[in-house]
């Protein structure tokens, strides 16, 4: 903010200084009227370009370069430079009445247009740079938050301790299965604890962890959880935001299977169609209002990350049909 005002002031002062110097060297004007004219010019220049800045921010599309507004910016630059020209001529005529030749006025306007044009180009560059930095920071923040949530939701509550409890029962009932479950639990925890700033992972990488996770939940829920996975080979190689599938599957277990009496299904599907990756997680259950203890952070955070990563070209939807809830994600296949 302060940098903006400093630049505004410094830019217009420098522009005026050049103008004053040229005029004085040519010996065309006396100092008094010249300074008065330029004071008005600086003030009007700052006010008008500041108005332009506000107009730009009203029109800007999040995630898009301001360069996309170029027809608007050009028209504004022309209008502002014309206004400034008229203003300077008017001030001049207060001191030295007389008409201006068209050539002189055009020369003055040309100078103004140059000034406002430079202003617009510089402003667009800086603003874009800033919004890119901002976007990157937001993306990092959302990812960290997702990692933290995931860490919390996996390391702490239900899943971990109930799994450990099931495994303790299996040690007695079926030692070989207990060993297998401990390996899978280790895999899930390791995936969770991995500190990785990558914005995407291949779907198959995430699917491997999700498979281990489902095996553990199957031990807990026994015949209440029937799961099926259908993933096309083309889809398996596609990059997805980390923990996307995991979040959807966890939601399906927590709000669907966990709340359903008797057997329930969980189906994971993924395929690529027209350069769009479609991932769907369907489960037995209903879309009920979130219980008091749920903050719905999982899905909300996922939506936010998709928005930041794909800038509106990714979709996440929840549908209910019959006794099923289906979460679908559509991602553009990049590259």
């Amino acid at each position: 903010m302060n940098r903006y005002w400093n630049c505004q002031l410094a830019g217009w002062l420098a522009y005026s200084a050049v103008g004053i110097t040229i005029n004085l060297l040519n010996g065309r004007e006396t100092l008094g009227p010249l300074l008065a004219g330029h004071a008005v010019l600086i003030a009007a220049g700052i006010v008008l370009t500041h108005q332009l800045r506000r107009a730009i921010h009203r029109r800007r599309v999040p995630g898009q370069s301001l360069g996309a507004l170029w027809p608007f910016l050009t028209a504004q630059a022309v209008a502002i430079s014309l206004l400034l020209t008229a203003l300077v001529i008017a001030v001049n005529r207060l001191f030295a009445p007389g008409s201006w030749s068209l050539v002189a006025a055009a020369g003055l306007w040309w100078g103004m247009l140059l000034a406002v044009g430079v202003w617009v180009v510089l402003y667009v560059r800086f603003a874009d740079q800033r919004s890119n930095q901002h976007r990157e920071a937001q993306l990092q923040l959302a990812l960290r938050e997702a990692q933290l949530r995931a860490l919390e939701s996996q390391l702490n509550p239900h899943f971990l301790f109930n799994s450990l409890n099931s495994i303790r029962a299996l040690v007695d009932l079926d030692p070989a299965r207990a060993q297998d479950m401990l390996t899978r639990l280790s895999n899930v925890l390791r995936h969770r604890l991995r500190h990785d700033d990558a914005h995407t992972v291949p779907l198959q990488t995430e699917l491997a962890t999700v498979t281990d996770y489902l095996a553990l939940e199957t031990v807990r829920f026994a015949d209440r959880l029937r799961s099926a996975v259908t993933v096309d080979p083309a889809a398996a190689a596609c990059p997805i935001p980390p923990l996307l599938l995991q979040t959807l599957v966890e939601n399906a277990i927590k709000h669907g299977i966990g709340q359903t009496r008797g057997p329930g299904d969980l189906v994971i599907q993924a395929h690529v169609e027209d350069a769009v990756l479609h991932v769907a997680v369907e489960n037995t259950g209903t879309l009920r209002p979130a219980p008091a203890d749920s903050t719905r952070v999982g899905l909300q955070n996922l939506r936010e990350r998709l928005h930041l990563l794909y800038e509106g070209r990714a979709q996440l939807q929840l549908h209910e049909h019959g006794d099923r809830v289906r979460a679908t994600v559509a991602l553009p296949v990049l590259g």
Binding site: S166, L170, A222
Partner: peptide
Amino acid sequence: DEPLARYE
């Protein structure tokens, strides 16, 4: 609701 938990 978990059979193994009851077993334990």
